[in-house]
Amino acid sequence: MCRYLSRYLFFLCVLLIPCVSIAQSATLHPVKEKPAAVNFELLDIDEIQHKLSDYRGKVVIINFWATWCPPCRFELPSMERAWQQLKDKNVVMLAVNIGEDADTIFTFTADYSVTFPLLMDKNSKVIKSYPVVGLPTTYIVDPTGHLAYKAIGTREWDDPKIIRTILDLNQ
C-alpha cells in the first residue's frame, strides 16, 4: 500500500508542479540592452506631481494598470505588501493608471487599499511611450534610469525572489 501511496504522491507532484509555478509567478525578465526609461510627469490622485527623473538614484517600479483589468486587481495586494518591505530601502513604486480619472480610482481604492502613489495617464501618452501592449505590465527602472526588468501579467510582488531582485539593483 505504501508503494501505491508513494506512486500517487509522485504523480500528483508531477501534475501540480506547473500549477504551482503559475500561481507563484515570481519571475522578472531582464530587459535586453537596458534602454533608458522614458521620462514622464504625471499627477497622482492626490494631485501630487511625479517626475520620473526626480527619482534618479532610486529603484523605480512602474506598474501600468486599470481598475477594470482583473489581473491588475489580483496583484495590487501583493504590490502593497512588497511596498511595505521596500519603501524605506531606496525604492519607489508608481502605479500608472490608464485612461481613468481620480474619482474612479479613488472609489476603487475603497476595496483595494494601497499606500503607494496612483498616477493618472489619462490620455495614455505615457504608456504608449513605453514598449507596452497589454495590462498589467511592470518595468523596474534601475538607479541610473534604465529599464532593468519587465513582467507581463500578474506577479506575486512580495515573493522573496522578487524583493531580492529589486533590492539587488541598489548595489
Binding site: A26, T27, H29, C69, N123, S124, V133, A151, I152, G153
Partner: peptide, 22 residues
Amino acid sequence: IAFEWSLLPTKQEYLPEDYNWG
C-alpha cells in the same frame, strides 16, 4: 483608450510566466 486596452493585444511576446487577459 478604454476599449483599446480592454482588448487582447494584437501582437505579443511572452517570456516564462507572462500572460494577458483581454
